[in-house]
Simulated assay, not measured.
Amino acid sequence: MILYKQFTFDAAHFLTKVPKNHKCKQLHGHTYHLTVFVEGEVKEEEGWVIDFYDLKSAVNPVLNQLDHQLLNDVEGLSNPTSELLAIWIWRKIKPVIPQLKKIELKETPTSGVIYTGE
């Protein structure tokens, strides 16, 4: 079974490796939408794959490092594209939630990435 939980956070960034006249070279912000997917067997005793509380407790400290921050100043995110941000988030969550299957990160309602690990 695969379950998911959705999160949001707000952050600013600018892209460092785009041409000088590219609009994303300028400081701007997004309300990011993160969906975390966990896969596993339903545990007979509890009746769930993972407690949503435990999932939230694992993800929130990671998002607290990003929320209302300039992503370029976060260690390991000097060029914070959606792709690199998704990899960064994955690497923080996977050790805590080994059943992590994939994450979906949207920077706008119509644009985002899906990452399934390395």
Rank of each mutant, 00 (worst) to 15 (best):
Q69G: 05
V59M: 08
D67H: 09
Q6I: 13
Q69N: 07
I97W: 01
H28M: 14
A58I: 05
K43Q: 14
N21P: 14
W90G: 02
N60Y: 07
G117C: 06
F9C: 10
S78C: 01
T116Y: 09
N79C: 03
I93L: 05
P61A: 07
E107Y: 05
Y115T: 04
V42Q: 10
R91F: 00
T31E: 10
Q26L: 13
Y53D: 11
T81L: 00
D10N: 15
D10R: 14
V74P: 06
T108V: 08
I87Q: 07
C24N: 11
N79D: 12
N64C: 03
K92I: 02
N60P: 00
L77P: 07
K23M: 14
Y4I: 06
G29V: 14
A12V: 13
E75Y: 00
G117V: 02
N72C: 03
I114G: 05
E41A: 13
T110K: 12
I97S: 04
V62Q: 01
L85K: 03
S111Q: 12
P80H: 03
V38L: 12
V74G: 05
G112D: 08
N79H: 06
K5L: 14
Y115P: 05
V62I: 06
L85R: 00
L105G: 06
V74Y: 00
D73V: 00
G40S: 08
S111N: 13
K25Q: 14
L66H: 01
G47H: 06
P98R: 07
N79Q: 02
K101A: 10
N21G: 12
V49N: 01
A11F: 11
